[in-house]
Amino acid sequence: MTTTTLALTPGYWSNLGHGVGAILAYAALGLALILIGFQAIDSSTPGPLRKMIATGNPNAVIIAAAGVTSMALIVVVAIWASSGRLTEGLISTAVYGLVGIVAQVVAMRLLERALGLNIGNLLKAHHHELQSSIVAAAHLSIGLIVAVSII
């Protein structure tokens, strides 16, 4: 009868524990940044964005989804750029994420003025307006710009 022994490299459990801890830390930080980003978008737009999303206003949903996705792009690239250094990675992710939130809010207000959009009316509309696509694209574009600048 042959027996098989499971051989793990030294430090396996320690590395695994460190990896799980990193996942939990980055997930918590990423969620916090996404919530802060959503709050910043909500605070900088007329009307309660949460309520417009809850009632199914399509433009509010599209624009908010793009903002959240944009924030996630920034967080993902900041984590990737940390090269496995957890403490430095968490700090840089937090800083880059907050800078990205500010950049998004400022860019959206500038875009609104440049294009002559009334973002309040756009968000409150109960039917899809094509202008929401340009606002969503701008959110994603700013997120990509901030994310790539991290690299």
Rank of each mutant, 00 (worst) to 15 (best):
I150E: 01
R50H: 08
V68T: 09
G120D: 04
S43I: 05
G120V: 11
A107K: 11
T3H: 13
L122E: 00
G116P: 09
G143F: 06
P10V: 09
L98H: 01
M71K: 12
I63N: 02
A72W: 08
A22I: 04
V102Q: 07
H18V: 13
G21W: 10
N59Q: 03
I142D: 00
I74E: 01
R85D: 07
A125T: 08
E112N: 06
A25C: 09
R113H: 14
H127A: 09
Y96D: 05
L24A: 14
I63R: 08
N15K: 13
T55G: 00
A66S: 13
I145Q: 02
G89L: 05
I63T: 02
S44G: 12
H126W: 03
Y12D: 01
G11V: 05
L49S: 05
A27R: 11
L115C: 08
S14K: 11
R85M: 02
T87W: 08
L31T: 14
H18T: 15
A78H: 06
L110C: 01
Q39G: 12
A114I: 13
L33E: 03
L140A: 09
V77A: 07
I36R: 14
A40V: 05
T87V: 14
G84N: 01
T87Q: 06
L115E: 12
L31E: 00
M71C: 10
G17S: 07
I63P: 01
G120H: 12
A107S: 14
L35T: 11
R50C: 00
I151W: 12
E112V: 05
V76D: 01
P10H: 09
K51L: 01
L130H: 05
G100Y: 06
S149M: 12
G19N: 15
V95G: 02
T45R: 08
S149E: 01
E88H: 14
N118S: 06
